[in-house]
């Protein structure tokens, strides 16, 4: 390769400045890396790196604080929105976001997420929904699909016994305090671009003080789903999107006026 070509002005892809220079611990084919990257790119674009405090969850993304070059705290399981509330209320001019999985946000942290949205806390939540508990080895989550096999629903989720998946974005969108609530997917490049725009809009919502913002990202877990990374991407499209339709569930009038 001609070394003359390797110049900053020719770069089409590089590590965002809001990332640290370490390798992630995520499994091959997992979309956490993609979700992280979208956040880092948005923080770069909006020049928010030095103003941002992230709140990491418990779950696969428990080590998220290692990957972002911003201040970070590590919450107890499900409590990230409460911790973010504490930070944002004393430092309202900083940018505070939580990064939470489905077990963290929709199961143990249900009260904290609903009330943070209800209060209209001016924070941003990135909700990674892959329909399973990853870190503990593939148990049923509140978002596990009907019939989906997990280690704690080995015959497939039986809705008679184990209930139905929870659609968090739809629920939270009902709250007056929510300014921006959307669901996107990370299963192909077109959807990743849309997801990026949503993450940007969510942080813009916070910068403008327009209330609670959340982007739900449909994500993969090839390891615990027991299929290949490529099959996982297809599985999101074939099985998850019918249950968790993509779309904008709440875009307040003020947020609707944001032009990126």
């Amino acid at each position: 390769m001609n070394p003359e070509i390797i110049k900053p002005e020719n770069a089409v892809y590089c590590r965002p400045a809001s990332f640290t220079e370490v390798s992630t611990h995520y499994c091959p084919g997992c979309t956490h890396g993609t979700a992280h990257r979208l956040i880092a790119e948005v923080l770069d674009e909006m020049m928010l790196k030095e103003k941002t405090i992230g709140v990491a969850p418990v779950g696969c993304s428990v080590f998220a604080y290692n990957y972002f070059d911003t201040d970070f705290v590590e919450a107890a399981h499900g409590r990230a929105p409460a911790m973010a509330t504490g930070i944002k209320r004393v430092l309202p001019d900083r940018i505070v976001f939580t990064y939470q999985g489905d077990g963290d946000l929709a199961s143990i942290g249900m009260a904290e997420i609903m009330h943070a949205a209800g209060r209209g806390e001016n924070i941003t939540v990135i909700f990674v929904n892959n329909a399973i508990y990853g870190m503990t080895g593939g148990q049923m989550a509140p978002t596990t699909l009907p019939g989906q096999k997990t280690t704690s629903s080995p015959l497939g989720r039986d809705v008679e016994l184990q209930g139905y998946p929870l659609r968090m974005s739809e629920m939270i969108a009902k709250m007056d305090g929510a300014g921006y609530v959307v669901r996107r997917s990370l299963h192909d490049p077109a959807n990743i671009r849309k997801a990026k725009k949503a993450v940007r809009t969510a942080f813009e919502t916070q910068v403008r003080g327009l209330g609670f913002s959340m982007v739900e990202l449909l994500s993969t877990c090839p390891t615990n789903w027991g299929i290949t990374p490529v099959e996982s991407l297809q599985w999101v499209e074939d099985h998850m999107i019918p249950v968790f339709p993509l779309g904008d569930f709440k875009v307040s009038a003020a947020v609707g006026d944001i032009r990126i």
Binding site: I53, V55, V73, A75, A76, R79, A82, M83, A84, T85, G86, I87, R89, V90, L91, A111, E112, M114, H115, R119
Partner: peptide, 25 residues
């Protein structure tokens, strides 16, 4: 800052977040 939390569980975690910023909480 004053927040009436949804539970004591949430309250102590709000305290935790604010404490991390270094203010008296």
């Amino acid at each position: 800052a004053f927040v009436q939390a949804e539970s004591e569980v949430a309250a102590i975690n709000m305290v935790y977040g604010a404490a991390c910023t270094g203010v008296r909480v």
